[in-house]
Write a protein that binds this DNA or RNA. Structure first.
Lengths: 200, 200
DNA sequence: GTCTATAAATCGATAGAC
DNA sequence: GTCTATCGATTTATAGAC
C-alpha cells in the first residue's frame, strides 16, 4: 500500500512486534483461516516475502499471539490475591483480574477464545486454556466444600457458566472504551446474580 | 467415499436436508472458512459437482443453517410464557427455552454464535441475532423498572452478561448427553447467582 | 442426480537479486 | 530487510456426458 507520493504506509513502529499486532488485528476482523499472507503483508505495508523474513508463516504468528494471551492469564494465578485467603476471596480476585486482562489484551485474548483446535498450535493453546479453567473449577469446588456459597447447583456447572460469563466480555467490549469499574461490576454480577430477586 | 464392496456411504437419509446436516457438522469441526466444497462432498459421499446440484455454494449452506437457528430462537419470543406475566417471569421463561433450543439445535446455534459478519449472510444473521438480544435487554430494563430485581448494575451490562452466560452452554454441552434439568439449572444460576454467598 | 474433466483464481511458501 | 517472480497445491465453480 502506498500513498499518492509513493511513500510506504506502516501503522505502528517497526520490528516483529508491530507485525504481530497488525496480524492479530487482521485475524480478528477476517477470521484466521480467511486471512491470507497477502492480506497480512498489505495491512503491514510490506510484501509477502518481506513478511516471511520475520515470521516463518501464518501459524507462527498465531502461536505467538496465543502465547501472549495465555501468559497474561496464567500470571493472574501467581498473584498474591489468587494464592492467599479463602477460596471465595481468591475466586473473586481471579475473576476481577481476568476481566482486566481481557480488556487489556483484547485482540490476543479474543483470538484465544476463538481457537477450536484444528492445528498443532491451536491444540496447544486449547490445552493450556483448559488447564486455566480447571484451576478455577477446583477453586469453585473448594468454596462449596468450605460452605462459603449456597450449594445451588453442581460446582462443575457453576464453574463453566462462570467462565462463560466472564469470557463473553470480549464479544462487546471496545478497546479503550471500557469503564474502569467494569472488572468489579462483572465480578459482582457473577457472584451475586445477574438479576437477583428484589428483597420483599 | 466407498466401502470395500464399492457401495456408497451416506450417513443419514437423502435430500438436501441431510446434506445440510453433514455440511454443518463439517463447518463446526473444521471451521467454516477452512472447510472446502471438496471436504463437504467427501463427507456426504458424493462428488463436488453433485453437491453443487443441491446448493448453489458454500454460503447458501451457511445461510440455510443460520436461518434454522434464528427461526428457532425467535419462535421462543412468540410463546405464551414470553408474552404474559411479569417481566421477570417472562425473562426466566425465555432463558430456559433458549437453553432448550441451544441443546436441541446445537450444531446450528453453535454456527450462529461463531458468525462474525464477514459475508452478506453473516451480516444478515448478526443483525437478527442482535435484534433477539435487544428484546431481552428491553425485558431486563422493564424488570428493573418494575422493581422486581435489586438494581445492582446497569441493565445493559446485565443483559449482555446474561446472554453471554446462556450462550456459553454451546462451548461444552454434548448432543444427547445433557441433563434434562440443564435449562432449569442454567436459569437458576443466571438469576440467583453463580456462587451466591452462603446465608450467615 | 450423478459423474469426469477442467477452468480461473488464490493459497502458503520459496528462490534469488539488490 | 526488502523486493520481483514463480512454484505447486488447492480453491470455488462450471461444462457437459450419462
Amino acid at each position: 500500500m502506498t500513498t499518492e507520493t509513493g511513500r510506504r504506509v506502516r501503522r505502528p513502529g517497526r520490528g516483529t512486534g508491530s507485525l504481530l499486532e497488525v496480524a492479530v488485528g487482521e485475524f480478528i476482523t477476517r477470521g484466521y483461516d480467511a486471512t491470507s499472507m497477502e492480506d497480512l503483508s498489505r495491512a503491514a505495508g510490506i510484501t509477502k516475502s518481506s513478511f516471511y523474513h520475520h515470521f516463518s508463516g501464518k501459524e507462527a504468528l498465531l502461536r505467538a499471539a496465543l502465547e501472549r494471551a495465555l501468559d497474561r492469564l496464567f500470571a493472574i494465578l501467581d498473584e498474591d490475591g489468587a494464592r492467599t485467603g479463602s477460596p471465595l476471596a481468591r475466586l473473586r480476585h481471579i475473576v476481577r483480574e481476568q476481566v482486566e486482562v481481557l480488556v487489556d489484551e483484547l485482540p490476543y485474548v479474543t483470538l484465544l477464545l476463538r481457537v477450536r483446535g484444528n492445528t498443532e498450535s491451536e491444540r496447544w493453546a486449547l490445552e493450556r486454556r483448559r488447564a486455566f479453567d480447571a484451576q478455577i473449577a477446583t477453586l469453585v469446588g473448594e468454596a462449596v466444600d468450605a460452605g462459603e456459597v449456597r450449594a445451588g447447583v453442581e460446582p462443575t456447572l457453576a464453574a463453566r457458566l462462570l467462565s462463560g460469563l466472564v469470557n463473553s466480555v470480549v464479544e462487546w467490549v471496545r478497546p479503550g472504551r471500557s469503564s474502569s469499574s467494569l472488572p468489579e461490576d462483572v465480578t459482582r454480577v457473577a457472584f451475586e446474580g445477574i438479576l437477583p430477586a428484589a428483597a420483599p
